[in-house]
Simulated scan of single mutants.
Amino acid sequence: MEQILIVDGYNIIGAWPELSKLKDTDLEGARDQLIHMLAEYQSFSGMKVYLIFDAYMVPGLGKKYIQNKLAVLYTKEKETADERIERLVTNLMGRRKEIFVATSDMIEQHVIFGKGALRLPTSELWQKIKQNRREVRERITHEVTTRKNPIESKLSDVDKAKFERWRRGQ
């Protein structure tokens, strides 16, 4: 079953303490950090992630671009992030698809639930991202400690002994 995660970008930025603090001085930096975090999450989890940013007061047609294999969408003029999320859920809904929407907006959660999507509270997504980061660090640490010398595992005991004698100058 394909799993899809749709994230209300500014809602998440406001809900996560690390990003909320950053947005007060550097909104673009908070957006970039969220994009980076979700790109890592997408790579590790295998979920397809769509990140929606509200451009309600910004003139234009809206845009979509891919950054680090993450789909980042900006809404059209006079379109809210909630409207874009609802439309995306409707378009993506299908057999063998499980769609999650990450937002703390209770009204939006009820609407998307009515369309067949599942809600993912912002705090739960934050916990999943932190857990994924820990697992990646553990995997890297494990690989580094277990594969100190990858060639050594391919050598016979006789060859290992021969190299050890050479190393010691014998």
Results as ranks from 00 to 15, higher is better:
Leu19His: 09
Lys97Pro: 05
Gly94Asn: 14
Trp166Glu: 07
Arg165Met: 09
Gly114Gln: 10
Arg87Met: 11
Lys148Phe: 11
Val89Pro: 04
Glu152Val: 13
Asp159Ala: 06
Ile66Met: 13
Ser104Lys: 09
Ile140Asp: 08
Glu138Tyr: 04
Asp8Thr: 10
Lys148Thr: 12
Ala102Asp: 05
Leu5Gln: 02
Lys154Met: 13
Asp105Ile: 08
Gly114Cys: 07
Ser123Cys: 07
Gln127Asp: 12
Arg165Ala: 14
Glu2Asp: 15
Pro121Asp: 08
Gln33Met: 13
Ala71Phe: 06
Glu40Met: 13
Ala161Leu: 12
Arg168Tyr: 09
Trp16Tyr: 08
His142Arg: 13
Thr103Lys: 01
Leu51Asn: 04
Ile85Leu: 05
Lys162Ser: 06
Met37Gly: 01
Gly46Arg: 08
Phe53Gly: 00
Asp157Met: 12
Asp159Tyr: 07
Gly169Leu: 06
Lys130Cys: 00
Val101His: 12
Arg137Cys: 00
Trp166Lys: 12
Pro59Thr: 11
Lys130Met: 14
Lys63Asp: 02
Thr146Cys: 03
Gly116Ile: 01
Met1Asn: 10
Phe163Val: 04
Glu135Phe: 08
Thr122Leu: 09
Trp166Asn: 03
Val49Arg: 08
Lys78Thr: 02
Leu155Gly: 08
Trp126Lys: 13
Leu70Asp: 02
Thr103His: 11
Arg84Tyr: 01
Gly116Ser: 08
Ile12Ser: 01
Glu108Ile: 04
Gly94Met: 07
Phe44Ile: 10
Arg165Gly: 05
Ile151Pro: 00
Arg95Gln: 10
Ile129Ala: 07
Leu92Glu: 15
Glu28Val: 12
Lys128His: 09
Ala30Gln: 06
Glu40Asp: 11
Tyr74Glu: 06
Leu22Tyr: 01
Lys154Glu: 04
Ile107Trp: 04
Gln42Ala: 11
Arg133Asp: 06
Glu79Arg: 00
Ile52Gln: 00
Ile151Trp: 05
Asp82Gln: 06
Arg119His: 15
Tyr41Gln: 05
Asp26Glu: 08
Gly94Ala: 12
Glu152Arg: 11
Arg137Phe: 09
Ser156Gln: 01
Phe100Leu: 14
Ser153Trp: 04
Arg96Tyr: 10
Gln3Val: 12
Ala117Asn: 03
Ile151Met: 10
Trp16Ser: 08
Leu70Asn: 00
Lys130Leu: 14
Ala15Val: 12
Asp32Glu: 12
Lys21Val: 11
Leu22Gln: 05
Glu83Ile: 06
Leu88Lys: 14
His36Asn: 13
Ser45Thr: 10
Ile140Tyr: 11
Val144Ser: 03
Leu5Ser: 10
Asp26Met: 05
Lys48His: 02
Ser45Asp: 05
Ala161Cys: 00
Asp105Met: 00
Ser123His: 11
Leu125Pro: 03
Ile66Glu: 09
Gly114Thr: 05
Arg84Lys: 15
Thr90Gln: 09
Thr122Ala: 15
Lys154Tyr: 13
Asn11Asp: 05
Phe53Asn: 02
Ile35Thr: 15
Ser43Met: 04
Tyr74Phe: 15
Ile129Phe: 13
Ile13Gly: 03
Glu40Cys: 03
Lys78Trp: 09
Pro121Val: 04
Arg147Phe: 14
